[in-house]
Amino acid sequence: MKRRNFLFTSALSAVLAVTVAACGNSGSPTAGEGGRRLVMATSADYPPYEFVDSASGSQEIIGFDVDIAEYITNELGYELEIQNIDFNGLIPALQANRADFVMAGMTPTEERKQNVDFSDIYYEAKNTIVSRQGSDLTTTESLNGKTVGVQLGSIQEGAAKEIQGANVKSLNRISEMIQELKAGRVDALIIEDTVASGFVANNPDLQFTEIPTAGEAGSAIAFPKGSELRDEFNTVLREMQQNGTMEELVNKWFGENSPAAGQEAAS
């Protein structure tokens, strides 16, 4: 299950880009010097899926999704460029032909499928409740009457709004949500387990509890409607599942020694 549930908005705020590029209006891959270039849009605030490598000082966007994208584009003979956009601007970027595909741990909900096409699901996680240590906020029922922080445009935002009596507070970035919780301005957060574990590991005053899976789940790659890239990407995704590459990347990014440890989770 993944964070992200699209809200229709025209805000396309490009915060930072590994390489700034624009796609052509045709929706086909952009031609780069010496080869074909694909622009991947993401929201690099979500370790270990995608985040800025501040620890090394490089400011490069790295993560689970980035490794998958690099593997696929290399196999298909494309150059890869990455743009960092606020999450709720990702699908509008596809619709405006500003990107060839989106990887941001995005769940292929029925609402999103009306606007974009999705690849096969490549990973599935679970939602959690993150709260301060010692609190009794460990079930959705316990959130009745509480203020619950979620990421704007996320699938967790939709899930929180279904909790009876919960006062939902939507914020732009995960690190901002953590600060709101630590400051007592929200009582709890709903975050995906793989992301929550990193933040809790670096903030021992917090705890998280898994929520039973219900409804739509899984992460997939989003493409503009009718994009021929979907079938190409699906072919490589299946190869990655069969040859063990996907398992290696899952172990790399979600294991105890993940390169994401100590990154934005500590903020």
Rank of each mutant, 00 (worst) to 15 (best):
S54N: 14
G63E: 10
A261V: 14
P48M: 07
K146D: 03
L171M: 12
D65I: 05
D120N: 14
G89Q: 12
L181V: 02
I121G: 12
F51V: 06
V20W: 02
Y71P: 07
E216S: 12
V18S: 14
R230Q: 15
D100C: 14
Q133P: 00
A125C: 11
A160G: 06
L38N: 00
M103A: 14
A217C: 13
I61G: 04
E210V: 14
Y49F: 13
G158Q: 02
L181K: 03
N172D: 10
F223K: 05
L249D: 09
V148G: 01
R230W: 08
S135L: 06
A17V: 09
P29S: 06
T209Y: 02
F51A: 04
R173F: 06
T213S: 15
I72H: 08
V168T: 05
L181C: 06
A222Y: 01
F64V: 06
L229T: 00
S10Q: 09
L7A: 13
D231A: 15
M40P: 02
A41Y: 01
V148Q: 01
I163M: 09
A69R: 01
A93E: 10
A21P: 14
I72Y: 07
M1E: 11
N243H: 14
I191S: 00
G255C: 10
S197E: 14
E111G: 11
N167H: 02
F233H: 00
A201R: 11
S43Y: 12
A159P: 00
S267N: 13
E110S: 15
R37A: 08
R4S: 14
T138K: 12
N144V: 09
T30R: 15
G34M: 12
G34I: 08
T138R: 05
E81N: 12
R185G: 02
G226S: 13
A196Y: 01
